[in-house]
Write a protein that binds this DNA or RNA. Sequence first.
DNA 1: TACATTATTGTACTTAGTACAAATTATAAT
DNA 2: ATTATAATTTGTACTAAGTACAATAATGTA
Lengths: 136, 136
Amino acid sequence: MQLLFEDLKEKLKKKNINLSYQRLKVLEYLTQVRTHPTVDQIFTDLQKDISTLSKTTVYNTLRVLVQAGLVRVITIEDNETRYDIDVRDHGHFKCESCGKIYDFNIDMNSLIVKDLNNFKIDDKNVYFKGICPQCL
Amino acid sequence: MQLLFEDLKEKLKKKNINLSYQRLKVLEYLTQVRTHPTVDQIFTDLQKDISTLSKTTVYNTLRVLVQAGLVRVITIEDNETRYDIDVRDHGHFKCESCGKIYDFNIDMNSLIVKDLNNFKIDDKNVYFKGICPQCL
DNA sequence: TACATTATTGTACTTAGTACAAATTATAAT
DNA sequence: ATTATAATTTGTACTAAGTACAATAATGTA
């Protein structure tokens, strides 16, 4: 996990994105808390360490990280935008009972569809909903 | 198209959902306007016909229709909830240039993943983003 | 028709996210 | 080190989506 964080710092440097204290803290948080947190969760938790933290900074930082391709946005639910440090292709399952979001492996290449022959595809998201084993 | 609308009216009756004027108008709109409209688009257009229409009614109606399984929610973008009268399995592609949302066929069964063996899956969504042929 | 139930409407409220200017911090050059 | 410049953070005000709820209207039923 620590390796991932150091790796991400390198990637930021290479993209000429300043490694400010706040940005590093957000990045560190996302590498450690793998529950696909919302802005509010990130802000509330980080504020315990950084008392002067502004929610705007969290929004700004996440926008920067998403644009840099280091973080992905999850819009599985219309009323909650979530963030994921894992940008590799994978699906998300939301349990409608406990609310937890699970990652699952998926072969995105097996998804390629003839209908989109002449389309330039930049981003693929697969969202499932239902009930998880623990809640069943 | 008219056949679809009549068919949907039947389904509403069978589910004991009142066929109020407003609900029928929303349903009719969704069968005719296949651009995956937002609440605001539905409300603005229908208000031309129904001057007393309330946005709350549109929200209520859509909730009823979604719960009845006659309409599906599309959360491809975090800042815009859209609605689709086509509840059959299919994917959605959003062009990040013109904003248009395209439907595409997809074999959801080929997607089944071992990671979700003990999960009860109720809803499957596939969202792609990129640039459409017209914008390329 | 009269009653009970359900749906609609409008207002007030909540909350996620944005705009923007002031203050702070970092960067670079001399 | 000092200054000038640029970038970042912060806080406030604002916008817009969506909800809560009570009053009104419409509908179904005996």
